[in-house]
Simulated scan of single mutants.
Amino acid sequence: MQQDVARETIVTDNNEQALINWLILSQIPRFGVSRWLKLNSKFEINLEELLTSSTKTLDGFGFNQQQISVITTPNRQLIDTSLQWLYDKEQRFLIHHAHSKYPYLLKQIASAPPVLFGYGCCDLLSSHQIAMVGSRNPTHQGKESAKRFAHLLSESGWVVTSGLAMGIDGLSHQGALTKKRSTIAVLGTAIDKMYPRRHIKLAEQILEHDGVIVSEFAPLSPSRPENFPRRNRIISGLSYGVLVVEAAIKSGSLITARYALEQNREVLAIPGNIHNPLSAGCHLLIQEGAKLVTCIEDILEEFPKINQSLSGVNNDKLQNKSSQSLASDKLLDSVDFEVTPLDIVAQRSNIEVTEVMSKLLELELRGLVTSVPGGYIKLGEK
């Protein structure tokens, strides 16, 4: 009778058991989803059978002693902690690679994470996404570009995905949230540890606007420097393309771009000042074949079929707005995209300084220029 009860529990709790199996698989060193699929195909064995195999059988499958030890005696505390985290509060999810809601694009990459922990509605992970990445210490122009392009992409129906880091990542999330759109953040830390701490409020805003925060790292997992570049493959893997806003030659953003290329994703980059080291990475990508981006249309034209399928968005209106010439205003035409002193603006526009100051204030309120130490900088169309 006791055996029947146990069997009944396994059957009715099959989803949880499958999840436990994948949590065990995620613990096996140097054994990911790709190797499991090959093993599954070669030996026609399911995951449950693999994890209950004898040491001798596992040895025959090619597992080493360290891997066998993990399979036969997995970290039960990690499993219990993961399930406790999942059931502790609502709006949390934990999906494995074989789950119906595991995002299709991410499933296609060679190093897909076995499990994904997340806050929010996991359905958003299957939306049409563009990843945005860049420097943690961007220039003023880089900051404006991140917010502007994220805003315009969101308005076009795309979901912006980034890494919640300081700099371009956080600004991209903020830009997407401008009109209360949803955005996706991928952590390089345990799912229960928001990093950086200064972005806890931003993380709350993401969830308040039906966004999603995900991580492949279980609750209480230790933070390691190598986990941050590792999470970049998920950022690109979830997305149809990666937009690099500002990046040095040696940066995490270029790592994301490399992952994107390996995953057959589009790589796009915003050019900048040739003397700015934070533009060097973008220029290198462009030289290697990345799409040069100066306006939202440069991005949209790379995905014509997807843009046609995105509903509820008036792309014609957006494109007409974006293509309006900023040079039609004499005063605005006198301000460069680099710092332009007030007296230079007055000289170019042939307008008195006092009137220039008043008109520049109007332009600033419209989001077309911004005041910085030493003068003003022209911004792109909002």
Rank of each mutant, 00 (worst) to 15 (best):
N75L: 02
I249S: 08
Y104G: 00
N40A: 11
D59E: 12
P138A: 05
D4V: 08
V356C: 13
E364L: 04
T256Y: 08
Y376H: 15
Q91M: 05
A176H: 03
I249H: 07
S239I: 06
S311L: 01
A18D: 01
S358K: 14
A110L: 13
D169L: 05
Y87Q: 10
A165N: 06
G163L: 02
P114G: 02
A112G: 10
I200R: 12
R136M: 11
I95G: 10
D13K: 09
L310T: 04
E204I: 12
T73I: 10
E288I: 05
F117D: 04
L94K: 04
T161K: 06
Q67Y: 02
Q66E: 08
A6N: 09
K180L: 06
P138S: 03
L361W: 01
K321H: 09
S127A: 15
D88S: 15
G380D: 07
N264P: 01
A327Y: 11
T340M: 12
R265I: 13
E301R: 09
L207C: 11
F303I: 04
I235M: 02
E364W: 05
V339M: 05
T256S: 10
I95L: 14
H173D: 02
R7Y: 05
N232P: 13
Q319S: 09
L125I: 01
G367P: 04
